[in-house]
Structure formats: structure tokens, C-alpha cells
Simulated assay, not measured.
Amino acid sequence: MRRTPRQQDLLGRLTAVVVAEGFAEATLDDLARSLRCSKTTLYALAPSKQELVVEVVRAWFREATAQVEAHLAEEPHPGRRVTAYLEAVAAQLSGLSRAFLDDLAAFAPADAVYRRNTEAAADRIRALIAEGIEAGALRPVDAAFAAEMVAATMFDIQRGRLFARLGLSDAEAYAALAGFVEQSLTA
């Protein structure tokens, strides 16, 4: 859907509110009041609160992905690119409130967006590990297996399992994963 600059601005401001405060308890009236707009203005972004939440989650992931890729582009060393990627993901996730992450996990359509983005990130990790091995910067391990292990951890992070077991936020878990991967794979 093509949005006007005003709608883009509103979606950005709405995203900031939702990732800071969560969305399960917020009504459209609450969101409109917080953004100083009408509910009709919000309905121009999506026809229901549920669809609006999905739009917000998609918008957040689009921006986060762009930021992660920009950070990765600044890292030329093939042995550091996996770590740089995971650290950039951790930095993006650090801005998300626990309320937002809990609401995300509890709302299947939004959680599905998170899952699709985690799958894309896992694919990106597979490619980065293979590139690092091919360049001789990472140990010659089975790239597919190493990537699957990283991906499995990423999915546990996405599902909230590491938070439940270890008390680590998603950002903290990604930062720990980055350190583990670097120590494990560096040639």
C-alpha cells in the first residue's frame, strides 16, 4: 500500500509508541489520543486494530532490517560479518519493551511476522557463515550445520524461550549469541 508522507510519519510515530508500551491493552482510542489524531486517521492505515498492529510490526522490521544491513555493509572482514550481523540485530531489539515482545508473542498474526523475519535472518546467517568459511576467515566447519545451530537459537529467542529460561531479553540473547558464534567459528 502506498502511503502519503503524513501517513508514513503517523505509522512511524505509532510504531514508536507500540514498541515502547505494547499493544494488547491499548485501544484505538488510546492510540489516537497518544498520537493526537482521530481514529479515522488510524483506520486509513489499516481497517482494524489487529491489522494496524501487524502493519506496525512490519514497519518496525522493515526499518530494523535496513539498519542491520547498513551496519553489516560497514564490516568488510568476512570473519566478523556474522558477529556484526548478530550484534546489529541485538542493537535493534534493545529498543523493544518487554510489554511489546510479550504482546507480539501472544498475538499470532504479529508473531508470524516476527517468525518470517527470524527465518530471513537465519537464511542471512547461513550465507554469511558460508562466505566466511570460503574466505578462510572462519573455521572450516559444516556451514549448514553451524547455521542451523545459530538459527535454532534465533528461533528460541523469537519464541521467548531464552527469556523464560535465562531471563535474557531478546537483545541480550542476540548479543550473547554473537559472542558465542565469534568464539566458536573464528579461524
Rank of each mutant, 00 (worst) to 15 (best):
A84P: 06
A66M: 07
L104G: 00
D170H: 15
Q7E: 11
L86R: 04
V89G: 09
R33K: 14
R116K: 14
E74M: 12
A108F: 14
Q50M: 11
A164S: 13
S38H: 02
R58A: 05
A73G: 13
A16Y: 02
L93Q: 13
E182M: 12
P109S: 03
A46V: 00
A127V: 07
A66N: 02
R62M: 01
A105K: 01
A164H: 00
A70E: 13
T15E: 11
A173F: 08
C37D: 08
H77T: 11
F100W: 00
R98F: 03
D29W: 06
L42E: 03
T65R: 15
L128A: 05
L138M: 13
G22I: 01
R62H: 14
R62A: 08
D142Y: 02
A130L: 06
P140F: 06
T4K: 00
E51S: 08
T118N: 10
E75R: 06
E21Q: 12
G95P: 11
E172S: 14
E75Q: 11
D29K: 05
R159I: 03
A120N: 09
A64I: 00
D9M: 04
Y174K: 05
K39E: 14
A88F: 12
F155D: 12
D123S: 13
R159L: 09
E69I: 05
D156I: 04
P5T: 08
K39D: 02
L96D: 11
R2E: 15
T41A: 15
E74H: 14
A32E: 05
Y174T: 07
A171S: 09
L52E: 13
A16D: 12
L35E: 04
Q50V: 11
L185K: 04
A121T: 01
A66T: 09
A152Y: 12
E69R: 12
G160C: 11
A88W: 06
T15D: 00
F61I: 01
L11G: 10
A152D: 15
A171F: 00
N117H: 09
S48Y: 08
G167E: 03
L185M: 05
R13S: 07
E148V: 02
E55W: 07
L185R: 15
E148K: 10
T186G: 14
A70G: 07
A59M: 10
G136S: 02
E119I: 00
G179N: 10
A164F: 09
L104T: 09
L138V: 04
M154R: 07
V89M: 12
S34C: 12
F163S: 15
A120D: 07
L166P: 15
M149D: 14
I133E: 04
E87R: 13
I157R: 10
L101R: 12
F107T: 01
L101P: 05
S184N: 14
A120W: 08
L185A: 00
R58Y: 09
